[in-house]
Design a protein around this nucleic acid. Structure first.
Length: 530
RNA sequence: GCCCCGUUCGUCUAGCGGUCAGGACGCGGCCCUCUCAAGGCUGAAACAGGAGUUCAAUUCUCCUACGGGGCACCA
């Protein structure tokens, strides 16, 4: 089934929400959107969905630009570069949403809802008690226009879509055909929040239309809300775009990819020395595959080749597990394909453009004995995961203490200690040594362990060694993305009850092998007879 | 709980009624080799289960199971 392309030019978009780190899922969806646009001579738009005032930050927005550019996903129109259909930041489009909401109010396709949060909670509770689907009960749906207008003056309210009751809605999905929904399953979605800002559903439909988006290629998590979007297009009298819902990237346990179980921040990959072309190549293998003219599977390809080949209809819908091992292999393939000069240039550029060196130099200066010695001390700042051998024993918080009275945590307690550390360091705050130190001290106190012991556990987890420059400055240099990924990695290791035993067994095996190598060779029977 | 989507080696996938079910990562073995990688060769490894349609089902239909997603004044 070919993807319908009736309108020209093709216009697609990626619409991240600037809440937290730039996400690898954004790059994944961005890649397919960009490639689709390019392969049809169309445009790729970046829109910032910052209607959640509480969580959106400008800092996160900047990080998204930086990371998407790094990855090589350059947009044709966006908040930072403008374009004919702007503004591209939803927080700057409030008037547009207000006008369109008024249109729906006037036409009777939307209505004001004065229900309080308390009432909504109660309704939901009752529905749950009766084992019904929790949905809005339509309490305000039939208020008279007069009452609605009168109360609107003083009472806080939201505006809801009057979703058709009865019948069904068919979502034509370009990847899976017609998906049918019973309208009774769908409730009256809030379109405008009481703060006067639109919800995703309204903003997304209005913007997609005004920005002349022809194909909405987005993650599968949106499939179930598409009937509401279709209802909005209908209420406005607009022609809906073509929808294609991509499978969700998964963790190893098949759940939706999450930072708990995978590095999801694009900054992580950049700072871990992953080549952007390798990352895109890898993402292009998720749910998709290609063959060469001879029918052989092709694993390695450039963005241009991906674009030339792209056929959305070939996307496989099973959720692909994001496998770092294969990414590593691909990255190595790219590195090996370079000439030595190219490799040197890339390494040099990677380091020259990296802000870690200025601070790392400061930390390492007192410890280096030569220029070449530098990376012995600073190398850990420029890698992804670190390997732990015998040092894994420090993960049992307290294992480093020489004081007999010191508290030592067992494995589950240590795991909780690390989880706590992750939680406090995740907090949206400036990534400074002061912030890190304060938070880590707090959790040591909470856990009732000596700060030296707690810090040692974190040091080994994040830097790989029990000796390092001052911890907090080091973590600052390492950066939030790498620090958290290493802490999460260790938490994952600690979650395995057998991990430490296995690490110990590995070490013992190594020692045994070394010992065996030291033994004089036993004379062979032949030798002794001779 | 309700709704929706999905299900081929551990993982990414090819397959679109008749195949020894192919490739890739990872894993094992062998070769190459001063080490380690890389590279070459090679091995183990999958159609979730059950009905039906058909001369023939991995492929089509239905049911079940399992996985995922959604059911917010978050996106």
């Amino acid at each position: 089934m070919p993807i319908p392309v009736t309108k020209h030019p093709v216009r697609v978009r990626v619409a991240p929400s600037p809440t937290g780190d730039p996400h690898v899922g954004t790059a994944y969806i961005g890649l397919f959107n960009l490639a689709f646009a390019r392969s049809h001579g169309g445009q790729f738009v970046l829109r910032i969905e910052d209607t959640d005032q509480k969580r959106s930050t400008r800092q996160s927005e900047e990080a998204i630009y930086k990371s998407l550019r790094w990855a090589g996903l350059q947009w044709d129109e966006g908040p930072d570069i403008g374009g004919p259909r702007g503004p591209y930041r939803q927080s700057e489009r409030s008037d547009i949403y207000r006008q369109h909401t008024q249109l729906l109010l006037d036409s009777g396709d939307a209505y004001r809802c004065f229900c309080t949060a308390e009432r909504m909670d109660k309704v939901r509770e009752e529905q749950r008690a009766r084992k019904e689907t929790a949905r809005y009960d339509g309490f305000c749906r039939h208020l008279s226009p007069e009452e609605s207008d009168a109360r609107a003056v003083a009472e806080p309210h939201v505006i809801r879509l009057k979703f058709p009751q009865g019948g069904e809605t068919v979502v034509p999905d370009a990847l899976r055909g017609a998906v049918v929904y019973d309208n009774s399953q769908i409730d009256d979605q809030v379109l405008m929040k009481s703060d006067g800002l639109p919800t995703y559903h309204l903003a997304n439909v209005v913007d997609d239309h005004l920005m002349a988006i022809t194909h909405v290629i987005r993650a599968e998590e949106w499939l179930n809300s598409t009937p509401k979007h279709l209802a909005l297009y209908a209420a406005f009298g607009w022609e809906p775009p073509v929808f294609a819902h991509m499978p969700l990237l998964r963790n190893a346990d098949k759940s939706k990819i999450s930072k708990r179980k995978n590095p999801t921040s694009l900054e992580y990959y950049q700072r871990a020395g992953v080549l952007p072309e390798a990352l895109l190549n890898f993402l292009g293998l998720m749910g998709y595959s290609r063959k060469d003219a001879a029918g052989q599977d092709v694993e390695k390809f450039t963005l241009d080749e991906f674009i030339a080949d792209l056929d959305l209809a070939r996307i496989s819908l099973g959720g692909p597990v994001f496998d770092l091992q294969k990414l590593d292999w691909l990255n190595g393939l790219y590195l090996r394909a370079m000439t030595p000069e190219q490799l040197a240039d890339r390494v040099t550029a990677f380091h020259r453009e990296d802000d870690r060196h200025a601070a790392a130099g400061h930390l390492v200066q007192e410890r280096v004995t030569s220029l070449g010695d530098y990376f012995d001390h600073a190398g850990t700042f420029f890698r992804g995961a670190v390997e732990y051998g015998l040092t894994a024993r420090y993960f049992l918080v307290g294992a480093s203490s020489r004081k007999k009275t010191a508290v030592r945590l067992d494995r589950p307690q240590s795991l909780r200690f690390f989880e706590r550390a992750i939680a406090v360091l995740e907090e949206q705050a400036a990534w400074t040594p002061e912030f890190i130190e304060t938070r880590l001290r707090d959790i040591c106190t909470e856990a009732n362990v000596a700060v030296g012991d707690g810090f040692m556990a974190v040091r080994v987890a994040c830097l790989g060694r029990p000796t390092s420059p001052p911890l907090f400055e080091s973590l600052q240099v390492l950066g939030r993305a790498l620090t958290l990924s290493r802490l999460r990695h260790v938490a994952g290791l600690l979650a395995d009850a057998q991990f430490l035993q296995r690490a110990l067994a590995d070490v013992e095996a190594e020692v045994a092998a070394a010992r065996a190598a030291l033994q004089p060779p036993t004379p062979t029977p032949e030798a002794s007879h001779a």
